[in-house]
Nucleic acid binder design. Structure first.
Length: 483
RNA sequence: CUAGGUGUGGGAAAGUUGGCUAAUCCGCCUGUUUUGGGAACAGGAGACCGUAGGUUCGAGUCCUACCACUUAGACCA
């Protein structure tokens, strides 16, 4: 065994998840700390993942008629305060601009924690008639929330990137129907690109978005048993429409308030991806979000160098013709073993090794990152084989993640079992009354909180009691400890 | 914001009764030889010891404040 130096991951994922996570981020060169606490640098290796998420999501938004726009970074205090519950939810973590140079501003400006208020101020001017609806806009931007909890790269920071969709409809039915469409898009991106299944459902009264009528969220389960909220969709009813006077004249000449939704996916998903698929060797990227899907490492000896390089280049061409992104690592200053390790830490899905021994037999050695499995492939068939392999890896990652998800959830119907399972790092699925008091008590007693309630519910038994307070249960809920 | 821990070249880390030129390993640069799981040799660059004050003849070392990282909490995507 050669020396294990500082390049490798030195800790096992299951032994110390936090330490492992930090190491993967540094050693896979994903992010760096900056001199502003809570604000990280998204280095190319992580930013390309974000670009993939953006592209996949954006394409789907546009396909259903959502357009992109851009609204100001700054929000005047008076606007931010227009909706009481909204400002109440965000006030403690708003960053304020108070000066221009040395002169105090007449009115301080919030750095947007989210853009409802600045956007709806415009919407109220733009919307006059039912002909102006629906209005479906989205923006890709950054927001700032001056969190007090210590930041974790990607998972929680003071500035993060996201999309914020803000749509307006003439009727409640239309607005609510959009929820399925949007969650469908997010789930498609999460499962089929990021290979990450989630628990999808409605948030509790206590946990819904500040200013929403209801929130539908996607909850992911991290390897340490904690849940983390991903993409979400909020139906705002007419709450903001009334606060900002977003109204239209209907076909009968009547003034009506509009119905609104908001929805988002954030750079937090990068962190969830790292945590969910990574292993003791480092990052594992699903092929569809990997900027580099295949790395070719030629094994160079003086006598066979030219032939090997030539063949390696041909492999690269063949793969690129199939639309595969290839990195041909022909650096001569690093040994093959060094390169193997480097690309494994960085999570590249497939590695192709080609050297004189392979050449003799017209083969190449192919190694998949997710399982570590090695195989010899005929050079003539390599492009097709690699394509198949990439699909298998994509599928395998999703399948594994689904298994982990389903084994993380345990059904319980009483408080004692709930506590046991939570201590056991499980998410519980329980009949629940849904009251804020009950949730407060539960949180106090266990440190856990409600996640969401699946949209299609298993039947509750007749007279089913709430697992926690013994009132009548209203619905099945996922509950657990969370980030 | 609260409570613990940590802070020494790019990374890791010695230095703990204050004392002269701040070890060592990895990485980096140059050259040569190498290359099938993190290569070898030779030479070289890189640190006002987190920041600001203070104590002292003298501070990486002691004191104070602040900052950052990290772990755990109250809030959140």
């Amino acid at each position: 065994m050669a020396k294990k130096d500082t390049k490798g991951i030195t800790i096992k994922k299951e032994d110390d998840f936090s330490e492992w996570y930090t190491q993967v981020i540094q050693k896979a060169d994903l992010a760096d700390y900056s001199s502003v606490s809570g604000c990280i640098v998204y280095k190319p290796n992580s930013y390309t993942i974000w670009e993939k998420i953006q592209q996949a999501t954006d394409k789907r938004f546009k396909a259903v008629g959502i357009q992109n726009a851009y609204f100001p970074l700054f929000i005047p205090e008076s606007l931010l305060q227009k909706e009481a519950k909204h400002i109440e939810g965000f006030a403690p973590e708003v960053a304020w601009v108070t000066h221009a140079g040395n002169s105090p501003l007449a009115e301080r400006l919030a750095v947007r924690p989210t853009s409802e208020t600045i956007m709806y101020d415009s919407y109220s001017k733009w919307i006059r008639s039912y002909n102006d609806l629906p209005l479906r806009l989205n923006q890709w931007n950054n927001v700032v929330r001056w969190e007090f909890k210590h930041p974790t790269p990607f998972l929680r920071g003071r500035e993060f990137l996201w999309n914020e969709g803000h749509t307006v409809f003439a009727t409640k039915e239309e607005a609510k129907a959009e929820g399925k469409e949007i969650i469908g898009i997010y789930n498609d991106v999460c499962e089929n690109y990021l290979a990450m299944p989630s628990l999808i459902g409605k948030k509790s009264e206590k946990e819904k978005f500040a200013g929403a009528e209801y929130t539908i969220s996607m909850e992911f389960i991290m390897p340490n048993g904690k849940a983390i909220q991903g993409p979400d969709f909020h139906h705002d009813g007419q709450i903001f429409a009334k606060a900002f006077n977003i109204s239209y004249t209907d076909q009968n000449g009547q003034q009506q308030y509009a119905w609104q939704n908001t929805f988002a996916i954030t750079t937090r998903m990068i962190g969830v991806l790292i945590a969910m698929h990574g292993d003791d060797k480092g990052l594992v990227l699903p092929p569809k979000v990997a900027a580099t899907q295949v790395v070719i490492v030629p094994i160079l000896f003086d006598s066979s160098k030219n032939q090997v390089l030539k063949e390696a280049k041909e492999i690269k061409n063949k793969l690129e013709k199939k639309g595969i992104n290839v990195n041909f690592d022909d650096r001569e200053s690093y040994s093959p073993g060094w390169k193997f390790n480097e690309w494994e830490v960085k999570g590249i899905p497939v590695r192709i090794e080609i050297g004189p021994k392979d050449l003799e037999k017209h083969l190449a050695t192919i190694v998949r990152r997710d399982t570590g499995e090695k195989q010899q492939i005929e050079l003539t068939a390599i492009a097709d084989e690699v394509n198949v392999l990439l699909e298998q890896i994509q599928k395998n990652l999703l399948d594994k993640a689904k298994d982990v998800l389903s084994s993380s959830v345990v059904e319980v119907d009483n408080l004692e079992d709930a506590k046991k399972q939570l201590d056991n790092k499980k998410i519980i699925f329980s009949p629940w009354c849904g009251s804020v008091e009950c949730e407060d008590n539960f949180k106090e007693a266990t440190g856990a909180k409600s996640l969401n309630s699946p949209l299609s519910q298993p039947k509750l038994k007749k007279d089913q009691k709430c697992f926690a307070c013994s009132e009548k249960a209203k619905y099945w809920f996922y509950l657990g400890k969370s980030y």
